[in-house]
């Protein structure tokens, strides 16, 4: 074998290994989607069925029995609302930290990220008591506020990184032209980091859509998100696997599409910006 053949072979081996891994990772998800198109009997058939006549019955039944759309609406409102609220607070803060850094800036940023380390369950009791006091248990408002706050550190960190890429000279020039701080932020910084802001928003929506700890613990029927709907399916109706699959598929599908657009930011966000 000459050098070239050897290289080709190793390249092919690489491709094959890579795709085998991908298939293994993908299989459970594939199985979930597949099962959602089966009847209940087909879902529990032994040996597992790969070929069958697909049915949409599960999806209709879910809408009929649990009003899927209400939960979906709750998911949309809380994830988008939480994201927008967090952006509203984070954009000025990130602007200030990126363009007027002080000695404490780095420390403050690290402190913000370190707040993500606390086990959420440790502060559940006080938060629960506050919500109870203000009659906010099982409301979308409570969830929006909490969602905004839990994502604030990651959003801050990402915006800070994007804003820092803007050359300071541009802002200086604008200031020379008499731009106020407000215009600096809204007409220069924000348009220049459009892409960064967009991907931060998408990432935040993905993370909040999937957030299950707070939605499981602070909501029940009124403000329950899709995640809560899936979770509720597992206990009393646990034996209806085709329906569980269908509801899981419905809960994941929208976010997987969004996630495709933001996979780079997802890894960046989950690693607190350590991986670019």
């Amino acid at each position: 074998m000459n050098e070239l053949q050897k290289k080709n072979l190793s390249n092919n081996l690489l491709t094959v290994t890579a795709w085998v891994c991908a298939c293994l990772m993908f299989f459970p998800i594939f199985w979930m989607v597949l099962t959602s198109f089966k009847t209940e009997l087909q879902a529990i058939a032994v040996p597992p069925k790969l070929v069958f006549k697909p049915t949409l019955e599960n999806f209709f039944l879910i809408q009929e029995r649990t009003s899927y759309t209400r939960y979906a609406w709750s998911s949309i409102v809380t994830s988008v609302g939480g994201t927008l609220l967090a952006m509203l607070i984070a954009i000025p803060a990130a602007y200030a930290m990126a363009f007027h850094p002080g000695r404490q800036t780095k420390g403050i940023l690290l402190w913000m990220l370190s707040t993500k380390m606390l086990p959420a369950v440790g502060v559940l009791m006080p938060v629960y008591l506050i919500c109870q006091k203000f009659g906010l248990l099982d409301t979308k408002i409570a969830l929006v506020v909490i969602f905004a706050l839990i994502n604030l550190p990651i959003i801050m960190m990402m915006l800070f990184n994007y804003f820092r890429e803007i050359p300071g000279e541009i802002l200086e020039a604008a200031r020379m032209d008499g731009a106020t701080v407000g215009r600096e932020v809204t007409q220069i910084v924000m348009p220049l980091s459009r892409g960064g802001i967009a991907s931060t928003v998408l990432l935040s929506i993905v993370l909040l859509w999937n957030e299950s700890f707070w939605s499981l613990n602070l909501t029940s029927s009124d403000a329950g998100t899709l995640v809560a709907l899936v979770a509720s399916f597992s206990s009393p109706e646990g034996l209806f696997w085709a329906k569980v699959s269908a509801v899981s598929t419905l809960a994941c599908a929208p976010i997987v599409v969004l996630g495709w657009l933001t996979q780079k930011q997802l890894v960046q966000g989950l690693s607190f910006g350590a991986i670019k």
Binding site: W19, P28, M32, V206, S212, W241, V244, I255
Partner: peptide, 30 residues
């Protein structure tokens, strides 16, 4: 490939937990 490989971490932990219960069922689980 990257797109496929990051799929699992884009799902909600609660959904993953629920679905793996199905995969782990004795007799019928995959």
């Amino acid at each position: 490939w990257t797109t496929i490989i990051v799929l699992p971490m884009m799902l909600s932990p609660a959904v993953v937990g629920t679905f793996w219960t199905f995969l782990y069922q004795p007799q019928i689980g995959l």
